[in-house]
């Protein structure tokens, strides 16, 4: 059973875009995520917040089956991930890949279409056009044929977002999308994400800048190995909850 949380009344009537119950993750006998419950609704944008080593990325990765779950249950739109993969898009940490890889911006964004194309599906001009539209949406049109290693950190993050856009998913899971990007990129990314939220997507992002939480997000999940608090920013993003999450020192940031 998933316990009731403070969720907007209208949203709680529908099936959550993502629901997690009793999720635990361990690396080498060390529990990094312990028994976490959470629900993420369509049309909302949630920040997953917590100190370093709180298990934020691990939670995301276990949800997506990238790392194994020790225990727990995950459902996207009420279904197991395998049956709704085409509705789920993941934006990994930029630092997690080798940007020296021989590919252009367009090549990486086209990878967002591989799920749809399959192994042998023919890549048609319409696919390329769709990828170019996504590249335009993140403001990288002039860079579409550049090698990805020649981009700035902010531009690389935009490439990742464009690839996720190409997937035409209904839920977007982002791991530290604003880490190490310039101010202009951060603004552009937030604009695109807010537009997507307006289109009814569920947005879930691991985030580390407490100061921008209220401006960017409408919901938060405070995490420190276990769930500390969850809900709308107005009610869950409190001094008390932050103190519990970060300890007294960290709460001063809020």
């Amino acid at each position: 059973m998933i316990p009731q949380r403070q969720i907007a009344p209208v949203a709680s009537l529908t099936v959550p875009a993502l629901s997690i119950s009793g999720l635990s993750v361990a690396y080498d006998d060390t529990i990094v995520v312990g028994d976490v419950d959470a629900r993420f609704m369509s049309g909302t944008m949630t920040a997953i917040i917590g100190p370093n080593g709180a298990g934020k990325s691990s939670l995301l990765k276990a949800t997506l089956g990238i790392v194994p779950k020790l225990a727990g249950h995950v459902a996207f739109f009420g279904e197991p991930l395998d049956t709704v993969r085409d509705r789920v898009a993941y934006v990994p940490q930029r630092a997690g890949v080798d940007w020296d890889f021989p590919a252009r911006v367009l090549d990486v964004v086209l990878m967002g279409l591989y799920g749809e194309l399959g192994i042998f599906g023919r890549l048609r001009p319409s696919h390329e056009k769709r990828a170019m539209d996504c590249i335009a949406r993140v403001g990288l049109t002039d860079f579409a044929r550049r090698q990805i290693g020649a981009l700035s950190g902010g531009q690389q993050q935009r490439v990742f977002l464009a690839r996720a856009l190409a997937q035409r998913a209904d839920i977007l899971l982002l791991d530290e999308p604003f880490a190490g990007v310039d101010a202009a990129t951060e603004k552009a990314l937030v604009q695109v994400l807010h537009a997507l939220r307006g289109e009814g997507l569920a947005i879930v992002a691991v985030h580390h800048d407490l100061a921008t939480v209220p401006a960017y997000f409408d919901h938060v999940l405070l995490l420190n190995r276990r769930r500390i608090a969850e809900g709308p920013v107005a009610t869950a993003f409190t001094e008390k909850a932050l103190a519990q999450t970060y300890g007294a020192r960290g709460a001063a940031h809020a």
Binding site: L64, I66, D82, R85, P92, G96, F101, M111, I119, R163
Partner: peptide, 21 residues
């Protein structure tokens, strides 16, 4: 040739490749 796409995605970004199934 047969596994060109899976190989290239998984080589560039293994986590993303896993989310594609």
């Amino acid at each position: 040739m047969a596994l060109w796409r899976p190989l290239s995605v998984a080589t560039f970004d293994e986590g993303f490749a896993a989310t594609l199934g």
